[in-house]
Design a protein around this nucleic acid. Sequence first.
DNA 1: TATCTGTTAG
Length: 590
Amino acid sequence: MIFFSVPLSILRPKRSFRRNPFFYQFISLSSSSSVQSLDMSEENNLHCPDYAELRSNMQNLAKSGAITKALQAFLLMRTAAPGKPTVYDYNSLINCYLKSEYACLHDLSTLYSEMKTLGLYPNASTFNTFLKGLNLLGASKSALWVTIEMCNHAFTPSFTSLSSLLKKCSDSMDLKAAISVLELMIGLNYIPTEPQVISLINRLTKHGMTNKACYVFFKLLDKGYFPTPYIYNPIIWSLCKSNEINLALAFFCSLKKKGLVHNVCSYTALVHGFCEKGLFKEALICLNNICYPNVRTYTIIIKCFCDNGRIQEALSLLTQMEKRGLDPDIVTYNIILRALSNQNMVHEIFDLFQKDLSPDRYTATALSGLLKKGNLGIAHSLLRDIEKSGSDMDVAVYNVYFYRRFKSKDPFSLMNYMKKKGIEPNNITYNTILKGYCERKTMDKTLEFFRTTEWPEKGPDLVSFNTILSAACKKRDSEMVERVLDLMEHEGVKLNVVGCTCLMQYFYNVRKLKDCLDVFEHMMSHGPRPSMVTINSLMIGLCKNRELEAAYRFFCNLKSYGFSPDSKTYKILEGYDDLVAKLQRESFES
DNA sequence: TATCTGTTAG
């Protein structure tokens, strides 16, 4: 049979032929299709099989995934009876093809476009069959396109198919498509299920599409949908988290006006929003307006006070919640412990540990402030407790404790200890050891470690290089500075803002102010862009070298370079009374 | 539906 020798590739159109922006995979076989040019002459059909036989043949070919041959078999059915084959036969072809293990999007698109070439008009079943196939293939975008086609042909997609399409689009994070499906559903008076709406709105808000989430929400509201807080709370939260407390309030009040009753999570979002804006008074008023605030409500406001250094207020809120019968959880405690630890408030930390709390790895790292201040006792016994409790530890927890313990122990025995616990050291662990070498050993020994050690990741990183560069600069060891710079050049490591700042500090400390300024100018014109640490370093360098006038001029010009002086900049100036006096005088005169 | 930590270089 000659048509069986037609290669599939001839039937397949070129990929670049796009018919529709939504469903470009649906490509026409075009008028030059070899299906059209099939030799249908009598001589090639000596045996004339009947309709049933031909149909069965077509179905078998389709089931085996041979769509070209199946299409050819479909055309052969013309010979069986007048008016044959029909769209039902074509539907059967598609159905059988979907049962084959070779079903793919490209072939499905071919089957769709070929219908028009053959002059077949799809019926509802055709569309549903295509939708079933596209669903199987997970091609949600194409399924949306077919659904729209179906509507354009005046057929109504079922609730089930739209609902499943909505889920597919939402799960595959094609949120724009999901919104289109939802619009189709609303247009047909189909109301999606609550879990679907919650999931879609959640995903929209989490991906910075809060306005779209609002759009979806109000569309449903217009249809008389009665939303629960589970549906709209993600919107309130999203607005509050992005510092849009005014919008959140407006949204919150408009819902209240409509008679919707908010729950504690809705109010907690507002508390968070007020806190984010620094509106502590309003946050507290909001807290007091909630009939039954919970641990999370309190935790959020406590965190806010802690982050703003208002620890006493945080502690009194802790007492207040306990009095109300709300037991703080480990999250609440970790937040407070972190703040206390940064302030080195050892007694208060001790008091907290008298309570019934089960420390976890968050607790371990929250105490890093304490470690930095040298209060090792409480921290180490805590670490032992956490290890014993079987809490999940990670490399960062060990790194936090590493440097402090390094002083009294051999670093490599500590690393073995980590490994025994199943924690692999990382570059940060090694950089910490490197720092220990810099502080306690000679630069030669440090460089030897640097070169000979087996680094855990892809070798030493920029921080590693900066660690040794910084050490050489601090020691004002010009030969070593040069060696490190040569090493960096050899390894193809470029200086970043930290390295450049180290070099500037080195230059002004060895009274090479011009070299220091050269580095700064180079940074300004070629990068890396100076940071405020760089700026402040230069200020110190100028002042140290008694270039007070230059420091003053530099300070005045900071804004024109795009920098804003910070508290450190002002502190530097405070150390130079004469300069400050001049600044004050001039500001009075102007 | 909402809340938590931290390690290395200037």
